[in-house]
Nucleic acid binder design. Sequence first.
DNA 1: TAGATATTGAGATCGAGTCTCAATAAGGTG
DNA 2: CACCTTATTGAGACTCGATCTCAATATCTA
Lengths: 169, 169
Amino acid sequence: MTANREKEQFLAYLRAAGHRVTSERLALFDEIFAQHGHIDAEELHAAMRSRGLKISRATVYRNLDLLVLSGLASKQRLGGTGDRRFLYEHLHRGQHHDHLVCASCGRVVEFVSPGIVALQTEICRAHGFAPGHHTLEIRGLCNACAAPGMVLGLGRPVVAEPVGGGIGV
Amino acid sequence: MTANREKEQFLAYLRAAGHRVTSERLALFDEIFAQHGHIDAEELHAAMRSRGLKISRATVYRNLDLLVLSGLASKQRLGGTGDRRFLYEHLHRGQHHDHLVCASCGRVVEFVSPGIVALQTEICRAHGFAPGHHTLEIRGLCNACAAPGMVLGLGRPVVAEPVGGGIGV
DNA sequence: TAGATATTGAGATCGAGTCTCAATAAGGTG
DNA sequence: CACCTTATTGAGACTCGATCTCAATATCTA
């Protein structure tokens, strides 16, 4: 089993919050940690059913929220104004990243930038806000789509190296 | 009438795109430019009806998309995972800004940061993307909500001074 | 092991946004 | 200006992601 450390964190969260440890919650945890990249609730539900697990749609939705509250999954809409569904992805130990999305083929690249963190701190300070978290989505054209005459291909999200470390304000 | 320059731009867009100039489109333009800050389609529709204008819900939705395409309005969800509806706001001459949202009272502060623009350019370059645009939402606690024992008040969006000008990567 | 109650499942419901299609009106043409 | 073509509108049906209801079930506590 992968993600043992994260599973411990999930169990600790459930107990601390007074929630019960059910087989459905454990199965959902396993499923989202078995998935690569972003996936929506319906796809997650279908994936579990196709593995022979019996779990209802409502339970998937309910428990995804718990995973987010536990800090082990993120829930956000990606893709600008074309975002109909929430997408979920598992997180490792609170590591935050942002997204670069190709406006043409939808390919998603994840990146970590210390610069944006510094920027967030500075902007909050300037406006008297206590910093929380941020979501940054950059949209553009990936190299494949920017090349003339290319047919689009939907790639898999890639975790990228940190870019830039200086203060950005 | 306010926003004459913008209205010219809207008319020019309509004609260039082969769309007709209808009274509904002009009324919707007037309404969104008469509004402060962010407003959703239903509220916009209700506001127009309450002024005695006869316009249908479907027409509001359809023409808001045109306003966005013309570059005169932005359409985005704000408020993290609590974002059920799209919010619209009018823009002045393509000026881009981002949002600082209070996680407690929902107050929205708009800010302009050259740093984030530089960051966007650098990150796109590092990953072989042609830069497009970005959306950055920072969530935190405003000074009123961070103060202990305060009752929350829902403020109006404020356009803030640019913060920071250095390269932020 | 039994009892209290949180959780589940199936399906109803909600709600933001889109679609359909007949009626209307914008704007080009003679 | 009057006519004609056709984009646009309005009313309401529809879509579909997400939430809610409530009886049945499973978890945890004592």
